[in-house]
């Protein structure tokens, strides 16, 4: 009874497929409504402004896949800028960038990773704590003021500039995405991440070093937050303690929109990239249409609810056909 022309069923499509369709529909609608939307400068603006959330989202995907979460990324984004602004006047820019990223990764990743991975403390509580700590330190050091910086070409290219015709941040996103997809799909580490999030005790019994895996994902998240922090400085030409406040929630929203399950074990980088790109497109479209930015938050909330609802329907649906598959198999 196999039909070669059969359309793929809902359950066989990846979780992010619905969001991709919405994204395309939104692009088409905007093309009709607002000719300026498809101007080169606006499109590259969307790409530039979504780069930082996407980089943070990739790190967030790792932590959520292990059934954890990293709420500190928005604060770390600001903290990184402050660290960079302190170091950059004392050394060559390249060295300052590398040293900043290394320092932030070791400090933040070390604290989150040790407490959550090694001691097994709750990720929500711990990273909520680091969210406060690093935001607070950033305010204390700067006294709440914004520090302008002469970032030079490197940092500017990472966050805002172009390489030839292509926006630098776009290249960074592509590069990080490819590495992350490879890590999750093709390495033992990636397999272990899904296993720990899917069933931690089973993973442990199978010989996986579960605490090491969990520590690693918080290091990855810190590393990517530090990288995003440097990019943000490049974009603003300044470091501000207020930057990225509340951004962690947008990032989590994008990750979940992309089909990653908050309970761990299911999700993908591709989904995260599409989810965050979609949120950015929505906000850009609303801005262009002259809709108040307050509405953007309402829209994000509604979308998130709809996405989770849709995912539930999808799981129910695939659960049913799975049961079907089981009894077919038993009968064979």
């Amino acid at each position: 009874m196999k039909n070669p022309f059969k359309l793929p069923t809902i359950s066989s499509l990846p979780a992010w497929f619905g969001i991709l369709v919405l994204e395309i529909m939104l692009l088409i609608a905007m093309a009709i409504l607002q000719p300026t939307f498809f101007s080169g400068s606006n499109l590259s603006n969307i790409v530039r402004s979504s780069a930082v959330p996407i980089i943070l989202g990739i790190g967030m995907t790792f932590t959520i896949l292990t059934a954890g979460i990293d709420l500190s990324v928005g604060s770390v984004l600001a903290f990184t800028g402050i660290v960079l602004s302190g170091l950059i006047t004392h050394m060559p820019r390249l060295v300052a960038v590398i040293l900043t990223i290394a320092l932030v990764t070791i400090i933040v990743g070390g604290i989150n990773g040790f407490l959550i991975g090694k001691l097994g403390l709750n990720s929500f509580v711990i990273t909520l704590g680091s969210l406060g700590i690093f935001r607070g330190i950033s305010y204390l050091v700067t006294n709440g003021t914004t520090r302008s910086m002469d970032t030079g070409k490197l940092i500017n290219t990472l966050g805002d500039g172009n390489v030839g015709p292509i926006p630098g941040p776009f290249l960074v996103v592509i590069f990080i995405s490819i590495i992350s997809i490879y890590a999750l799909k093709s390495t033992y580490f990636g397999r272990d991440v899904y296993a720990v999030g899917g069933n931690e005790f089973a993973a442990k019994l199978a010989g996986i070093f579960t605490s090491r895996v969990k520590m690693t994902v918080y290091f990855i998240s810190a590393l990517l937050a530090a990288l995003a922090g440097v990019m943000q400085v490049g974009r603003l030409q300044a470091a501000s303690p207020t930057i990225g406040a509340g951004l962690e929630l947008t990032v989590v929203a994008g990750v979940l929109l992309g089909g990653t399950r908050l309970s761990g074990g299911v999700g993908s980088i591709t989904g995260t990239v599409i989810g965050l790109l979609f949120l950015q497109t929505v906000s850009n479209s609303l801005t262009i249409q002259g809709v108040s930015s307050y509405w953007q938050q309402v829209v994000t909330g509604v979308l998130l609810g709809a996405a989770v609802l849709f995912d539930r329907i999808r799981i129910e649906y695939s659960g049913r056909s799975k049961r079907g598959e089981e009894s077919n198999v038993t009968k064979e």
Binding site: R191, Y194, G198, N199, F201, A202, L205, G265
Partner: peptide
């Protein structure tokens, strides 16, 4: 359910 299988993971993995 609790200790052996990773439910959402493929048979292969």
């Amino acid at each position: 359910r609790m200790k052996s299988t990773i439910h959402d993971m493929s048979v292969r993995d």
